[in-house]
């Protein structure tokens, strides 16, 4: 199993490298060059030449890429064009906020979705099951920012007035509620559907029937016999959804004016702040790969064939 995980780690690193290539290539496609972008209207030919020299822009593209990649590997993401701060330093606080937001959404959504999915499978074709499948279908078909807007209208100042609709620096913990809830609602439906389908398949399997025919209690049948066999397939979907969070958070942060990487990315795009864009995109890709790796590891660990064969 260790070998399989090492192989997947290697492919994760490979993917990340491919992403860096794409990100770097995109900056080359921009009109003008970095010096032009940084100086903007202040550009005089002398200052441009000086800055180009400073940024090594006269080197071949491959060398520039290598220099940039070297910096990234050493943790130096460059300097932001718009505010002249090192990108790493500038991103520290938004990353923390965004990760907290995503973590909270995952913590709320995953157990709840797994529980609802499993319960639907147990109550198959009854009221709860129909309600849940209807609800997930509706939620899955609405874009997440519309869900956010609906939540604001319903629970925000204009509706029941329970929670603030915009994040403010001096606000209390209640201002986290709506962003977390929106993300959780966006992430949960596929997990619920997958959990339901997998559980139904497992519950219909012969080994679950055999466990019941051995006279085991329904609780033992569920937790000892059914659940371990459902983990593998469901972990994949959970991972996909959590990885989606890394990108999905952008729109939601914008909606709630939440000071996270999503908002930074939006601003950076507006200002054409290339180093910042590169850093954020790399970060999102990194989270994506990491979460998928984690899901693979869980899937492998849940499969005794793999666990035993590669020990």
């Amino acid at each position: 199993m260790t070998r399989l995980i090492v192989v997947r780690l290697f492919f994760g690193a490979l993917t990340l490298w491919a992403v860096s290539l794409v990100v770097f290539a995109a900056t080359q496609a921009l009109p003008g060059d970095a010096a032009q972008l940084i100086l903007g209207r202040d550009a005089t030919p002398e200052r441009l030449a000086a800055l180009r020299d400073q940024l090594n822009l006269h080197e071949p593209v491959a060398v520039q890429y290598m220099q940039w990649l070297q910096g990234v590997v050493q943790g130096d993401l460059g300097t932001s064009f718009s505010n002249r701060m090192p990108v790493g330093e500038y991103l520290a606080s938004p990353i923390r906020s965004s990760l907290t937001l995503m973590g909270l959404a995952a913590l709320v959504a995953t157990p709840l979705a797994l529980f609802i999915g499993a319960f639907s499978a147990l109550r198959r074709d009854r009221g709860f099951d129909h309600g849940a499948s209807m609800g997930t279908l509706v939620l899955a078909s609405i874009p997440e920012f519309v869900v956010g807007i609906l939540l604001i209208l319903l629970l925000g100042p204009g509706g029941l007035g329970l929670f603030p609709s915009v994040y403010a620096r001096e606000g209390g913990p209640e201002q986290w509620t709506l962003p977390v809830l929106t993300l959780a609602l966006a992430v949960a439906p596929p997990i619920i559907r997958m959990m339901r389908a997998t559980m139904i398949e497992v519950l219909e399997s012969e080994y679950v029937q055999q466990a019941r025919l051995k006279g085991l209690s329904e609780r033992t049948v569920l937790w000892r016999h059914a659940a371990p066999n459902a983990i593998g397939p469901v972990a994949q979907v959970v991972a996909l959804q959590l990885a989606w969070l890394a990108g999905g958070v952008v729109a939601i942060e914008f909606l709630f004016n939440f000071p996270g990487v999503g908002k930074v990315l939006m601003d950076a795009i507006e200002n054409r702040d290339v180093p910042l864009i590169q850093a954020v995109v790399l970060l999102i890709a990194g989270i994506y790969i990491l979460v998928n790796l984690l899901a693979d590891a869980i899937g492998l660990a849940a499969n005794p064939k793999v666990r035993v064969a590669n020990r």
Binding site: A211, K214, P228
Partner: peptide, 30 residues
């Protein structure tokens, strides 16, 4: 009643034994 008074031997043990559980667990829990 099940397992103690009446026991069942399935058609296909490959699908009736739980793939995720050790034999010891499955035998003991009977």
């Amino acid at each position: 009643l099940r397992g103690r008074a009446v026991a069942y031997i399935p058609q296909s043990p490959a699908s009736a034994l739980n793939p995720a559980l050790r034999l010891g667990t499955q035998l003991t829990e009977a």
